[in-house]
Design a binder for these strands. Structure first.
Lengths: 384, 384
DNA sequence: GGCTGGCACTCGGTAGAATCGACTGCTAAG
DNA sequence: CTTAGCAGTCGATTCTACCGAGTGCCAGCC
């Protein structure tokens, strides 16, 4: 109604984002208290907390102001106050101490990355478990997309008289495969010849950009090549997406007490494409935390998402994230995500350390985020 | 107290498992009603249901008997009755109509298996989604173990001067890989030579039983072979287990209203080894349904598990399962699991249809179920 | 002017009493 | 053996009273 009135009533030179020191201290106290207890916090409790040197009456009037400015809300008239998304946002941006992992946890992380072995998928999956363990929140790990990796080897392996497997090894160590069903028997030599030809043509190219495959002169072999080419194209289409690993989804059932919330958040996590988009969006906006409605997902409005990039030798290769209630322990979550993301990047980099120039095709992400695909696990229906 | 009394009171020649027709009809009515409404069901409702031609008083006295025999319980004195695990068991064994999928669902299944494409993992994953969609319960799909498949191809692909990828193709179309880090630069020819040698030695053997690898005469190549052999061994160790795919876990949050139950069931599903063991156990005991405490898992005591085998050309290759509350729609769930399991087996078989004799190494499972490993997704802690 | 103590007020949560109603078990009659 | 009738049980619901945490406001103090 009277925005001017509103603005003059607020004191000091703040412009929307700024709060004077005392308000900030009170807001911080409210947020940390609420994060700890999940109970609306009242003025008296705040007045007693260290760092606040005024009476509860003063705290009350400050709280009224904070409520007007949208940092706090009262669930009902005679209750304490709880932070709004904006309140958490201010807390995260200005107040929370950087957040450090305890020595025990640091050690756990170190030991994990020393011991972890196996191929990328396995490592990413384990990492999602680690992150979830560290924080008690659900964790997601998004692996690098293979779109920029180049083909290092192509092979056709016969599995039967009329069936073969197209095996493609990429420069980043990923292996893609696709079965090819010839309707007629194909002799082993033709298979081998076709494989060699495919290798010649595709080697060094990016998976999405192989072909045309030309001819070999031998029509039998060419027939095989043609079939395999189709499989190649299908590979390029299907495997363009990132893989998503979710760790500790059961943690959601601890973080939220409403079974409805659990259900809707779980069903979001089942749609891997959505998860990838979500993390990407947050990172693209230069954030490491998205609170409540800050990301566009209705179903996640009671969640906060903490994201950290995973970069392999300087180029962004994926992301790790945490999903918890808005009243999550941001300091800890940020620290954990950040450390794990970084260590994971280093670890993945180290595996490729001995890699040649093929690896550094690292063209930066093109930035567009439409058309991305991810392997779906679970329901594929677009959310309800 | 007086077992003889007990036994003589019951009529007819039953011995523990059998019930006379009227008791059975009443039990069936109680179970189906309870499955539908989740409310304790009283004698009056049963007396009205079609097929029951006696008064509520008679129903009551029969219910007393059924309670004595352990098929029903009363949550409290003045409430109706609900089935016990034993009650569900009898229902499943004797009463439930075979259960048929509706035409729409049959069609959905058919269309799914016509359209589904991609490699095994993807297909299994999608299948778990399908099954969950059909039934509204959480679904699990366990893929075949590779232990009986033989090696069809071995290749060493250089990813960098000192790094290579060992790529092993198995007769069932699976591809296993492992990166090998030589501490010195290895020329391309040595890699190729070592790869060829490995292929020679391993081809046709089972993954767990390759080696020893002998020598090639060239010490440089032998060094590479030795490193790769270690990777081979690691593969054999790691990839012995089945893969597990969970579809629609969010359905658990619909089926159960206690958030605690949701949490504990979810955390079971996170431990893939446990899931494999569970399904195996049930199948090994010749069952297709395990109700409540029938499987040994405390955390799943409020669940029922429906299992159907997936067999590829006669030999057991995996399983599909459904996880829901004990008051699940058994008829529908059984039908869905059975159909999907069978179709999946046929579909997987069709892919290998053109396969040669290598495929039919199908030695039956050895039956032991210790030492099995599964890729873990999520937490790895042994249950709480 | 800003801070504080005091006070009236609000309102969710809890406890207890009354009521309701869906069951049951029992019994006596058909 | 079945059935109608009846007394009894006990969870669920509603209502009331009450408590207490917490608020907003105000008058007085520094």
């Amino acid at each position: 109604m009277e925005p001017v009135e509103e603005r003059t009533r607020a004191e000091g030179p703040e412009r929307g984002q700024l709060l004077d020191a005392r308000k900030a201290a009170i807001l911080e106290a409210v947020v940390s208290e609420y994060i700890g207890t999940a109970q609306p916090v009242g003025s008296q409790l705040i007045a007693q907390s260290p760092g606040i040197r005024v009476s509860s009456a003063t705290v009350r009037s400050e709280m009224v102001a904070l409520e007007h400015e949208g940092f706090l809300v009262q669930p009902h008239t005679s209750a304490g106050r709880i932070p709004t998304d904006k309140g958490y946002r201010f807390f995260v941006d200005h107040l929370a101490d950087p957040g450090v992992l305890g020595p025990a946890q640091r050690q756990k992380v170190s030991r994990f990355f020393e011991q972890v072995h196996g191929e990328m998928e396995e490592m990413l999956e384990r990492t999602s478990g680690l992150l979830s363990d560290l924080t008690s929140y659900a964790a997601v790990v998004v692996g690098p997309s293979h779109t920029t990796a180049s083909v290092r080897s192509v092979q056709l392996v016969g599995l039967g008289p009329r069936l073969a497997l197209l095996v493609v090894v990429l420069s980043d160590g990923a292996v893609e495969k696709r079965s090819v069903d010839f309707s007629v028997d194909v002799p082993e030599e033709d298979l081998r010849a076709a494989g060699a030809h495919l290798h010649q043509v595709a080697n060094g190219r990016e998976l999405g950009h192989v072909g045309p495959f030309g001819t070999t002169g031998d029509p039998d072999v060419d027939a095989v090549v043609a079939q395999a080419a189709a499989a190649f194209a299908a590979l390029g289409r299907d495997e363009e997406g990132e893989q998503v690993f979710v760790g500790g989804p059961s943690r959601l059932a601890v973080a939220f007490d409403a079974v409805d919330t659990v259900r809707s958040v779980l069903s979001i996590l089942e749609q891997q494409l959505v998860v990838v988009t979500l993390l990407r969006d947050v990172l693209d906006r230069g954030l490491s935390v998205a609170i409540g409605a800050e990301h566009g997902f209705e179903a996640l409005s009671s969640c906060a998402v903490v994201v950290a990039p995973v970069s392999i030798e300087g180029h962004e290769a994926g992301a790790v994230g945490l999903l918890g209630p808005t009243r999550m322990d941001y300091g800890h979550a940020l620290a954990a995500a950040q450390v794990v993301g970084q260590r994971l990047g280093e670890r993945l980099g180290a595996t490729l350390e001995a890699g040649g120039p093929g690896r550094s095709t690292g063209a930066r992400r093109t930035g567009g985020r439409t058309g991305r695909r991810a392997r779906m696990r679970g329901d594929e229906r677009a959310g309800t």
